[in-house]
Every structure is written in structure tokens, then in C-alpha cells.
């Protein structure tokens, strides 16, 4: 019995999810200059001239936008979810849920278009759009996760003399973490897609080959952008899955 549970514990710690590396690896291969053109040329979808700026630069810009927005979303969304789930704040919580739901129904393009007059062209309006969209799953999952925390565990925590802060840090956040993390993954993956739209506003990133391809009627160019952003999304999802608590 004891020996058995020990083995389980050890193998659980040792097994590293190597599968996670698949998508980042594919992405890196596709970023080697010449690889994507060689793969796409046989399809006769259009001509691919050497990229300027190079694809890895576009990918990094894209990644930077998404990472920055996710960081800001976490910094805003988690405290917001915590704040509205404190006792006696039902009204505030409902308001937050309504607003977040509303954010989801406004089309991406509308937010970006509205942001341009205020912030001008460039990466700033795109970042704003990504933050607004990214907040939706993080806040709503954060609220759902915190609300789902076992009431009896919280009661016990209070009865044992934990302060509100200790309950939050030691009980609520750890228990809400899996649901919150699922929201972060959704938010990040969506934003990789949303960020391509930013290229239309001059944000750069992997939307650039897509937009150029569309205007030049070069499907191959569109495919390059689409494949790379899809691989980026899958890579980020895989990497984020590492943070989820494993059994």
C-alpha cells in the first residue's frame, strides 16, 4: 500500500508532458527562412518572395502584443474578479458579469475602429482591443471559479482563524486556479487570432501577410499568416497547460 502510493507519487513528478513541445517545435521549423515557401509552392497558390520584415520578427511582434495584453488582463481581471466576489457584493458581481458579457457581444472590429480615433494608428488600439476581449474569459472564469469554492471549506477556514486575506490566498485562489487558468488559456488563444486584425491598423504582427495577401489576391501569403498564427495559438495553449495543477 505504502510502496504503491510512493511509486505513483514519484512517477507523477517525473513524467514531463513532452507532447507540449510539439507545437512550439513546428512553429520554429516554419520560421526557418525558406521552409514555408518551399512547403506552399507546390500548391500553386501564389508567389512568395523573401519576407521583409522576416517572419520571425512578425511572430515576435505578434507574441509581444498577445503577451502584453495577457499580462495586463491578468493584472486587471484577477483583482476585479476577487473584488466582486467578496461577501455582500452580489450587486457589484452581477454588474461585472453583465458588463463582461456585453464586452463579448461587441464585434472585434468595432472596438478597434472606435479605438483608432482615440489612440491613433499603430499597436495601441490593437492592445486596447485585446485587453477588452481578453478580460471577458478571465473575469468570468475568475468569478465562476471563486464562487464555486466549497462553502464548507471557507467556513472552516474562517472558524480556524484565517483572516480574509489568508482565506483568499490559502484557500480561494488555489481552489479557483484551474477554472481561472482555463479562462487565461481561452483569452490568450482568442487574442492570437484577434491580434491579426490589428495589422489593418498598423500594429504589425502575423496579420500583415494575411492583409497583404488579401489585397494582392495571393492566397499563399494569406496561408503563411494563418498557419503561423494558428501554430502560435497552439503553442501558447500548450505552454499554458503546464501551469494547470496535475493529478
Amino acid at each position: 500500500m505504502t510502496a504503491g502510493s510512493l511509486t505513483v507519487a514519484r512517477s507523477g513528478r517525473q513524467r514531463w508532458p513532452w507532447g507540449v513541445l510539439l507545437w512550439p517545435l513546428l512553429l520554429l521549423i516554419c520560421l526557418i527562412p525558406g521552409v514555408l515557401p518551399r512547403l506552399l509552392t507546390p500548391l500553386h497558390l501564389g508567389e512568395l518572395t523573401p519576407f521583409d520584415p522576416p517572419l520571425w520578427r512578425l511572430t515576435l511582434t505578434h507574441l509581444g502584443l498577445v503577451a502584453l495584453s495577457t499580462g495586463i488582463v491578468l493584472a486587471l481581471g484577477v483583482p476585479l474578479a476577487v473584488a466582486v466576489t467578496r461577501p455582500k457584493r452580489e450587486a457589484l458581481r452581477q454588474l461585472a458579469e453583465t458588463l463582461v458579457g456585453l464586452g463579448q457581444t461587441v464585434p472585434t472590429f468595432a472596438i478597434l475602429a472606435l479605438a483608432v480615433p482615440a489612440l491613433g494608428f499603430g499597436w495601441q488600439p490593437t492592445l486596447l482591443g485585446l485587453i477588452v476581449y481578453g478580460l471577458v474569459p478571465v473575469v468570468s472564469n475568475g468569478i465562476a471559479g471563486l464562487m464555486a469554492v466549497d462553502a464548507s471549506a471557507l467556513d472552516a477556514a474562517r472558524g480556524m482563524g484565517m483572516t480574509g486575506r489568508q482565506r483568499l490566498v490559502r484557500v480561494e485562489l488555489p481552489l479557483a486556479l484551474p477554472v481561472l487558468l482555463a479562462g487565461v488559456r481561452t483569452s490568450t488563444v482568442y487574442n492570437v487570432g484577434t491580434a491579426t486584425v490589428g495589422a489593418a491598423l498598423g500594429a504589425g504582427g502575423l496579420g500583415e501577410p494575411i492583409i497583404n495577401g488579401l489585397s494582392q489576391q495571393n492566397t499563399a501569403l494569406v496561408l503563411v499568416g494563418a498557419v503561423l498564427s494558428a501554430l502560435l495559438a497552439l503553442s501558447l495553449d500548450a505552454v499554458l497547460s503546464l501551469f494547470a495543477p496535475r493529478e
Binding site: D150, S152, A153, L154, D155, A156, A157, R158, G159, M160, G161, R170, V171, P174, L175, P245
Partner: peptide, 16 residues
Amino acid sequence: RRGIGYVIQQIGLFPH
């Protein structure tokens, strides 16, 4: 509360 042991009916162990 830290000086008083407390057992609640629903047990309330911390699942994590």
C-alpha cells in the same frame, strides 16, 4: 478562533 478548535458539520477539509 486560533485558540479554539472548531469542527464543522460538513467537515470542510481543504480539497487542494
